[in-house]
């Protein structure tokens, strides 16, 4: 009954093509088929956001997205978040400066949420990065480090 299908996905700018089973979850496609283990699997129910990736620029939960649903999409993962020369992006730098990573398990999802926000256009009124980040769970930090990083990013945006 189960038959495989071929999908074509651009992952961090690189075209990938694979024969997959319909029940393959996007998080497993990334972690196991492509070996991109930076995307973390934590709650497996869409509650925590540790597995957040950008699907056509939009933050989605890769443990709730079948790989088939990403067919034809442009996907960004944490492995593609740094600058091309391997140095930290502006978002990553702000988090680093503000002492964010504690256990680090939520960090890739949080980074992708912040990168996703930076890419949204248009942005409806009232949407803030802080309200977006309310989607993702961190059990170590009390979120203050993230808030400090948001302030730093806002300051940087104000003083380019």
């Amino acid at each position: 009954m189960t038959e495989s299908l071929r999908i074509h996905i651009k992952v961090n700018g690189r075209p990938e093509s694979a024969e997959i089973a319909p029940n393959l979850m996007l998080v497993d496609f990334l972690r196991e088929h492509l070996g991109l283990q930076g995307t973390k699997l934590a709650c497996d129910q869409g509650a925590c956001g540790a597995c957040t990736v950008l699907l056509d620029g939009r933050p989605v939960t890769s443990c709730l997205t079948f790989a088939f649903a990403a067919d034809g999409a442009d996907l960004q993962t944490i492995e593609g978040a740094s600058r091309d020369n391997g140095t930290l992006s502006q978002v990553q730098n702000a988090l680093h400066d503000c002492g964010v990573p504690q256990c680090g398990f939520c960090t890739p999802g949080m980074v992708m949420m912040m990168e996703g926000f930076a890419r949204q256009d248009p942005l409806p009124p009232g949407q803030t990065l802080e309200t977006w980040m309310n989607a993702n769970l961190c059990r170590c930090s009390g979120y203050q480090g993230f808030r400090r990083a948001l302030d730093q990013l806002a300051n940087e945006a104000g003083n380019p």
Partner: peptide, 11 residues
């Protein structure tokens, strides 16, 4: 509950 509990299906 787990994504790995999802058996194969016809898409």
């Amino acid at each position: 509950a787990s994504r790995r509990r999802i058996a194969g299906f016809r898409l």
